[in-house]
Simulated scan of single mutants.
Amino acid sequence: MGFFPLHDASTIIDGCNGLLLYYASWPPAFHIVNPTTRRRAALPAPRARALLSVLSFDPCKVLCFAGWLPRGATIKVFDSGRGAWRGPA
């Protein structure tokens, strides 16, 4: 993974359909990395601090669980088509 410049300063937090979801703590950012094609994309930071982040079965979406509720969680979804997070503010 030497082609990904933040590999040593990031943590792999999930994988789906051959893609890896990295999290860099400084500056805080998510990165989607395809080890096969060596392509990568940085995601804008979600507005709320993520407690748990995963790639969904559609690898174009990243789910961030931002707040635990009595029956579930507040969820932010990164929509790669729009290039933005959506969900409750």
Rank of each mutant, 00 (worst) to 15 (best):
residue 11 T to Y: 05
residue 7 H to L: 04
residue 8 D to W: 03
residue 19 L to K: 15
residue 60 C to L: 14
residue 35 P to W: 01
residue 79 D to L: 06
residue 40 R to A: 10
residue 19 L to Y: 09
residue 2 G to K: 11
residue 14 D to H: 09
residue 60 C to Y: 12
residue 25 S to P: 13
residue 71 R to D: 13
residue 55 L to Q: 07
residue 27 P to Q: 06
residue 35 P to T: 02
residue 85 W to E: 10
residue 24 A to Y: 04
residue 77 V to G: 02
residue 55 L to D: 07
residue 27 P to K: 05
residue 35 P to N: 07
residue 13 I to A: 03
residue 80 S to V: 07
residue 9 A to N: 10
residue 86 R to E: 13
residue 59 P to C: 03
residue 23 Y to N: 11
residue 8 D to A: 11
residue 69 L to N: 14
residue 31 H to Y: 15
residue 85 W to S: 07
residue 76 K to Q: 15
residue 37 T to S: 14
residue 52 L to Y: 09
residue 46 P to R: 02
residue 34 N to R: 03
residue 30 F to I: 01
residue 43 L to D: 06
residue 47 R to C: 06
residue 17 N to D: 15
residue 26 W to N: 10
residue 45 A to H: 11
residue 67 G to S: 12
residue 59 P to L: 00
residue 82 R to I: 06
residue 16 C to L: 03
residue 69 L to D: 09
residue 61 K to N: 08
residue 29 A to Q: 14
residue 88 P to I: 04
residue 58 D to Y: 02
residue 41 A to F: 01
residue 43 L to N: 09
residue 4 F to D: 05
residue 17 N to I: 04
residue 17 N to K: 15
residue 78 F to Y: 15
residue 9 A to W: 06
residue 57 F to S: 13
residue 71 R to L: 11
residue 6 L to P: 01
residue 68 W to I: 15
residue 59 P to T: 05
residue 28 P to L: 02
residue 50 A to N: 04
residue 17 N to M: 10
